[in-house]
């Protein structure tokens, strides 16, 4: 998701990247208010392993956004929002209050490829119709991931370090790679 945003010329903004002295909820509200676009991925609302808790940050943030938009009226009328899940209609059962909304799904198989296409296609509608083909973004993503993995291993990162790379670092490296690639 981060790579596709960068490759399509957008700057990902995450609450973890902002001032750590500010309460997270304030940062989230600020990001919702000040960003032109937002993407809410609800796919983790169901836990995948026994005794693992589901994550409700995304549904919570989606609720905040919908509430803010409703209250703000014209001030946020141009704000565009994409809601994602792995299954198209699962939210009917989990968040039935959203019934009637349009949610994009990227499936359980070939998730990376399909997610890139869903995002890229959405960007053509709401950001700029001239976006690189999804096929190209997918191939570039694969090359970036392997380049990053090779360089992190060369810098003596363990597999665990690589798997737990922070979002801030990931955005930095992906941004640098994309910047050099598209020069």
């Amino acid at each position: 998701m981060i790579f596709t945003c960068l490759y399509c010329g957008l700057e990902p903004r995450l609450s973890q990247l902002e001032d750590s002295g500010t309460p997270r909820i304030k940062t989230i509200l600020h990001l919702i208010k000040s960003s032109k676009y937002s993407i809410h991925d609800l796919s983790r609302m169901k836990s995948e392993a026994a005794n693992e808790l589901a994550r409700f940050n995304m549904p919570f943030e989606l609720g905040l956004e919908l509430g803010m938009k409703s209250i703000a009226g014209n001030k946020m009328k141009n704000k565009k929002c994409l809601v994602l899940d792995t299954e198209r209609h699962r939210y009917h059962a989990a968040i039935s209050d959203l019934s009637g909304s349009d949610i994009a799904s990227y499936g359980k198989q070939e998730q990376v490829e399909r997610l890139i296409k869903v995002l890229r296609d959405w960007f053509t509608h709401v950001v700029n119709p001239k976006q690189p083909p999804a096929n190209k973004v997918f191939l570039e993503y694969n090359e970036f991931v392997s380049d990053l993995q090779i360089e992190l291993v060369a810098a003596e990162f363990s597999q665990r370090d690589i798997d737990n790379l922070s979002n801030a670092e990931y955005i930095h490296y992906a941004g640098e790679w994309v910047g050099s690639r598209l020069q």
Binding site: D147, L148, I150, S166, Y173, V178, G179, S180
Partner: peptide, 23 residues
Amino acid sequence: KSRVLTSGKVKSRITRRLNIAAS
């Protein structure tokens, strides 16, 4: 998510090598 940022020197080296790999 999580983890601390790598030291500036290591991060700069990885960044430089990634820039070369990409181009």
